[in-house]
Design a protein around this nucleic acid. Structure first.
Length: 430
RNA sequence: GCCCCCAUCGUCUAGUGGCCUAGGACACCACCCUUUCAAGGUGGCGGCACGGGUUCGAAUCCCGUUGGGGGUGCCA
């Protein structure tokens, strides 16, 4: 049973809950999965939590206490102590307004048997009688967490290391409730560049955000798996392989830094592995976005598909795709003035442009190979290598000095449009 | 303060006493390829936190120190 639990103060906001469901669906965990309990809303369970606390009072494992934070502070000051030393343990207080229910921490030691980190021993004397029910009667997270686990028959609790210190408290609760504790596994924390655990406030942690930026779910999942666990063999490997090889006991003990650069490298690899059709489908939201860089209705799937193998190696994220081929869908290329000036400052550039236009007007087969050899001979006549000779044409047609392979792009652009742009460029130069 | 966890290149890591002159990946640099930019190929840079033990032998075991992190709420 997988229970997604985030007890953030925003948890009862429906749109937030939906956000979690969407994000999980993205990485392959469906809300329809029988093992998925869905985002947990504490309010639905509160009565059970309170009942459990009361039961603990009945069995002598918990007691009422009327001391406020100020009372505790005053007493500590007077006695030179700190924390709460079980002062109300034997006062036999009953329920009353403002009274909390505290757990009676037993003597001895608590050993947490952790599948990742081994046995961790805690001295119960160092754990104070913690609150179960607040003065207003509401249950605290720790209690709610345990009670839900008990009721749901949870057998394995896998969570971040930040919870390890509170695990003895939870285990004592399981014991007091007469239920065998679950198998624990505390996973290493994910940290930011400051080596602090990543938090919603400071860091980018929402899966939805990475999806929105054009990361592939497979890349995300694969990368995440390499933090805290090492795949056998290559780092990049399919989920089925990872799933089969994964052992909880192989999980690392040290925190790992979430490196966007490495995620990007994974993403680029995954993008290159896509077939043209898969790539098109994955990119579609960005290709048809209002800010794609060209009028949406001029987008042409056939052109994109033909260019896909040349676009893929130039993308780190799916969001990069429109920018690579936008000039093919624009009525007029957006000219980078600096590039234009620089390229046409070269002595033979204008002549190459003029001659190429002429040659392209009469080229018999409009295909990349023919276009290339035509320009190659023109370049040779001017003692220019292809790398130099193609520059004026590229700038004239795409407006930029960089981009996908030129002749393949001209092939899909077509003779008429290519010549039109070459003529425009020529005119602009005069 | 007290408790708990952790410690190999900048980062993610391999490594469980000899195979380690410490291997890989990302990043970075160089070169190659090349129709620009990418991608790809080759090479380079770069690390066992420190101090004591144990041992014929230690990145690996033990102790300590230092450093980092987490917890310690009538937060979740």
């Amino acid at each position: 049973m997988l229970r997604i639990e985030d007890t953030d103060e925003d948890r009862n906001r429906p749109e937030w809950t939906q956000g979690i469901i969407d994000a999980l669906a993205w990485i392959g965990i469906s809300a329809d999965d029988p093992h998925f309990e869905g985002p947990y809303l504490q309010s639905d369970y509160t009565q059970q939590h309170i009942a459990a606390a009361l039961q603990l009072v009945d069995t002598g494992n918990a007691y009422y206490c009327d001391m406020t934070a100020a009372d505790i502070e005053a007493r500590n000051k007077a006695e030179g102590s700190q924390g709460y030393a079980g002062w109300s343990r034997d006062r036999d207080l009953g329920p009353g307004p403002g009274r909390v229910v505290r757990f009676r921490v037993p003597e001895g030691t608590t050993i947490v048997r952790d599948q990742v980190r081994g046995d961790v021993e805690f001295d119960n004397a160092l754990i104070e009688d913690f609150v179960l029910l607040r003065g207003n009667g509401s249950p605290v997270f720790l209690l709610a967490n345990v009670i839900d686990d008990v009721h749901m028959g949870i057998t394995h609790v896998l969570r971040a290391e930040e919870h390890l210190s509170n695990t003895p408290k939870q285990q004592m609760l399981w014991d007091a409730l007469g239920s065998p504790p679950p198998v624990w596994g505390h996973l290493p924390l994910l940290v930011n560049e400051q080596r602090k655990k990543i938090s919603k406030r400071r860091d980018k942690v929402a899966l939805e955000q990475y999806r929105a930026e054009g990361f592939l779910a497979d890349a995300m999942v694969n990368y995440l798996m390499t933090l805290g666990w090492t795949p056998k063999g290559e780092e990049i490997q399919p989920w089925a392989q990872i799933e089969g090889d994964f052992r909880l006991s192989d999980v690392h003990l040290s925190p790992a830094f979430f490196d966007l650069k490495k995620l990007s490298a994974f993403n680029g690899d995954y993008i290159r592995m896509l077939s043209p059709t898969e790539f098109l489908e994955a990119c579609r939201p960005w290709l048809l976005a209002p800010d794609a860089g060209y009028p949406i209705d001029s987008f042409d799937e056939t052109v994109f598909l033909a260019m896909a193998p040349h676009i893929q190696p130039r993308c780190v994220t799916l969001a990069d795709a429109p920018g690579v081929i936008d000039f093919l869908f624009l009525a007029e290329p957006v000219v980078d003035r600096e590039a234009w000036t620089k390229v046409f400052a070269a002595s033979e550039a204008v002549a190459v442009l003029r001659e190429t236009k002429a040659a392209y007007e009469s080229v018999s087969d409009w295909n990349a190979e023919a276009l290339k050899s035509a320009l190659e001979s023109i370049g040779a006549a001017h003692d220019l290598k292809l790398g130099k000779a193609q520059a004026p044409i590229r700038v004239a047609v795409s407006g930029r000095t960089v981009g996908p392979p030129l002749f393949e792009a001209l092939e899909v652009l077509g003779r008429d449009e290519t010549l039109r742009r070459l003529r425009n460029a020529e005119a602009a130069l005069n």
